[in-house]
Write a protein that binds this DNA or RNA. Structure first.
Lengths: 361, 361
DNA sequence: TTGTATGCGTTATCAC
DNA sequence: GTGATAACGCATACAA
């Protein structure tokens, strides 16, 4: 079957056509259709917006003609007059990592339900670009801005500034304690604790920890969550089972786990800091022919690119990152809607990013 | 070091503050600053837009007051009058896959250079949603729309419709031959051929092929690119070295490669259809302790999530998907700028998605 | 129920 | 140089 002749084969990409065509059209407005129908533009406007103060007949006539003339409402003009564009602006460091693209999907998902659109920008971890973006968004009449700060960002004046201009802003994941705003973040301590408890409940008591450098807050939080779970369950902490590796690297994690396994002091479960590390452990497990999950259970945080390879059944919506997005959108929409009422209370929502990767049954 | 006490530790996420605050402000306009300065709004407008027909003093005064009053131009109003928002609309099936998010990064990168913003929407592979999105974009005065069709999309009237309204549209990657528009696509045939030639140039002549089901056009194109390279280099096609697997699955690819390797009929290089498959091959290579790239070279298409794990040195901008985005943006911006001139010729650009994953030196 | 007039914030075309 | 004024496309208070 693989032995077909190729001489007369035309790759599909070559079948595409190159043609010319171009036409500049001015779009039809309510004015046009009003003139055509000999009514006022106010009447047309009312008919199109399904207003109550209009007769059935004129409404029908307007709608009919609008369709015939191929009328489309200009959302920009509508924004200007309504002082609302029904658009949320989102600023993330990059959309190239699953965590952020998932978050955005969550935001979009929630926004879409109530007819909101989402405008996405990437700061590319650049403070300067972030400042520019926030300025653009603020000047574009978006109804709200959701920001995850770039790594460079130390000064938050640009955000405080748009807040002072009365624009709803929400921070997620990469937040600042200096800004009094609604925030959505993951709770690393509680998340880790929950995961480890999960393993303990399933009868594991020699649970290894493999994580990144403890100098990072996120690592320390997760490590202490791990310890806390052991403590509460009266499982002694075994220093030899806890490994701190210097970087989030598949190879390092694999090597560390290999040494651990071959040391004889074998764990019955591994709590991995992130699924990049889990992948390393999984790879070595395969190499060593360890049965997952029966001989060894692997669980950890799953907010990374690799998750779906490790756990193919995982859908986007299962990801904590997606839920962060959803919650973030929900919160800012709440704030936007309460703007008139002038009684909004900022909230900080904390997500437990539990994602069990391969647990034993 | 890992033995710290945790009793007094406060996870960082708990340090966040919940406070209230809220203020609705009406933004300052050129009218406000004109009144304050006792000049006309026209003068203010000219000063702010750095017009030539204005005196240095008034300009300076306006700029100074504008800063003091915290003036920001309303981009929506500007769009309305300029009939241009300097925004590109992008519709992709999802941003959750590296291929698409990379493409978007490419688009953004190019657009950003000329002061354009990018509005991103996900069709979620739904035709219905795609139609809605295109409508929204068309009504939002975006200057151009870039679309990669959803899998469901068979009917292209929604696109033809906005084209007829005079809105520049460009198709990328998932295109249609029924629409006469500029397009940017990858050339699977040439891409595969180039990769295989690359391996041949490096002295390999027992090059295995591992790819997906040939019923898919993309697979057939790549397979024939592989064959074509062999043919041109007078290397006989060995049926036993060409493996068609039923799905894009890490495990399948690994298993197929393992069988191949253990059959004794060993290749000195593998051309992998996609890097998901390459990952499978890499995993098994590790298991079998095959030296990569010395004993075996692996090369293939690299538009997938896994690429950076396989080839850590790879940057986003190296990805063909990024280049597709760049080219797409370049083309549509060209079209937008030539709109007045009414002389634009649609082009189809074909990208060769060559990404060598682990080549031998 | 419909029409008139005004405004959203900005730019552009005239005059002066 | 600067100032009125008319757009851009739409919505609405008010009048009829």
């Amino acid at each position: 079957m693989l032995d077909r002749k190729i001489f007369f084969y035309i790759p599909s990409t070559f079948k595409l056509n190159n043609k010319i065509a171009f036409n500049m059209k001015k779009s039809v407005t309510i004015k046009d259709i009003a003139k055509e129908l000999n009514v006022s533009i106010a009447t047309v406007s009312r008919a199109l917006r399904n207003s109550s103060e209009i007769s059935k007949e004129t409404k029908k006539a307007v709608l009919k003609l609008a369709k015939e003339m191929d009328y489309h409402p200009n959302l920009v003009a509508r924004s200007l007059i309504n002082k609302s564009s029904r658009v949320l602006g989102v600023v993330v460091p990059t959309i190239n990592r699953q965590f952020w693209s998932n978050s955005i999907s969550g935001i979009e998902n929630e926004a879409y339900k109530v007819g909101y659109k989402v405008m996405i920008f990437q700061s590319a971890e650049s403070y300067q670009k972030e400042v520019e973006i926030v300025e653009i968004l603020a000047n574009s009449m978006v109804d709200g801005i959701l920001i995850a700060f770039s790594k460079e960002t130390q000064d938050f004046a640009h955000v405080q500034h748009v807040v002072d201009r009365g624009i709803p802003v929400l921070l997620f994941e990469r937040v600042s304690e200096f800004l009094q705003l609604s925030k959505v973040v993951t709770d690393d301590f509680l998340g880790a604790k929950t995961i480890v408890n999960h393993l303990i409940e399933r009868g594991k008591n020699r649970i290894a920890y493999i994580g990144g450098p403890l100098s990072l807050t996120v690592c320390m939080d997760r490590f202490l969550g791990y310890k806390s779970a052991l403590l509460e369950n009266k499982i002694p902490f075994d220093e030899k089972l806890a490994i701190e590796i210097s970087d989030f690297n598949v190879e390092y994690a694999g090597r560390a786990f290999k040494e651990l396994w071959e040391s004889g002091n074998r764990p019955d479960a591994v709590f991995c800091f992130a699924d990049v590390l889990a992948l390393g452990v999984l790879a070595v497990s395969k190499e060593l022919k360890i049965k997952i999950p029966f001989e060894l259970a692997i669980a950890g945080f799953g907010n990374d690119e690799i998750a779906k390879y490790v756990s193919p059944s995982l859908t986007t919506m299962d990801q904590p990152s997606f839920q962060i997005g959803q919650l973030a959108a929900k919160l800012i929409l709440e704030q936007i809607n309460s703007e008139e009422k002038d009684d909004f209370l900022f909230k900080t929502e904390i997500i437990k990013p539990v994602l069990v990767i391969r647990e034993s049954t």
